[in-house]
Design a protein around this nucleic acid. Structure first.
Lengths: 117, 117
DNA sequence: TGAACATATGAACAAATGCTCATATGAGCA
DNA sequence: TGCTCATATGAGCATTTGTTCATATGTTCA
């Protein structure tokens, strides 16, 4: 696929494009990066993750804390589970969720720093 | 609004919820955090930001690099502009975009680190 | 075993999103 | 001024997303 299909200009150097392309990270990797950020890009999930960074919690407590239905919280927890951002343990009828690792805390932290500017 | 509306359980302590609530970051802040991550949560925008972290580029070159229409790139650049993640300068007919600051580079970097696991 | 409860999940639906297409804007140049 | 080109933007549309509602699953306990 030639550049001409997208850009008909001559004087804008294709060499610049080619040079940058060699230094670009793999598209698949950048896609995974976007996937992670997409998961973090929802207020409910951010609040859940932040709450879990303070303390392990069960679904019911999270639901009360966030003032959201148990179903809504559960649906979001599934998304976080599938993305391996949280882990959980069952204790009788109650399921306790916590962050999968400190990496997540760091991600949230960097986001908070940026938002606090 | 009582917890009961969302959680009828007695033995799951409301004190835990109350205690965590006092330590929770402000909801408005967490909303802004989610907003930033939402913007980073799209492959096109991540690729644009990553490219700009390597070099200042014009719309046309970005379009060629990403093999996307000029219109699509321009639309995404507007979103990035509104979020103050990129800045731009005009040079004749050409508009050059670059990252607003190194904060953005750091955000992307942390995301890449996570995705590289 | 059967009732009660914490959690999970499927279907449905409204809202948000990202692209395309057509067109507008704005700058350089003949 | 009129033409060309780089960029911006509005409308339309298909897809994705987050919630609710209803219901299923799985565990405890009488």
């Amino acid at each position: 696929m030639s550049n001409d299909e997208f850009c008909e200009v001559q004087f804008i150097n294709g060499r610049v494009v080619a040079e940058v392309r060699t230094r670009m990270l793999d598209d698949g990797l950048l896609l995974r990066v976007a996937d992670i950020f997409k998961i973090l890009g929802d207020p409910t999930r951010v609040r859940i993750l932040h709450a879990l960074s303070l303390r392990e919690m069960c679904v019911c407590d999270l639901s009360a804390l966030l003032e959201m239905s148990q179903s809504a919280v559960s649906h979001q927890l599934r998304i976080l589970r599938n993305a391996r951002l949280v882990k959980y343990r069952r204790e009788g009828k109650v399921v306790y969720y916590s962050l999968a690792d400190e990496h997540i805390t760091k991600l949230i932290k960097v986001g908070v720093e940026h938002a606090s500017e």
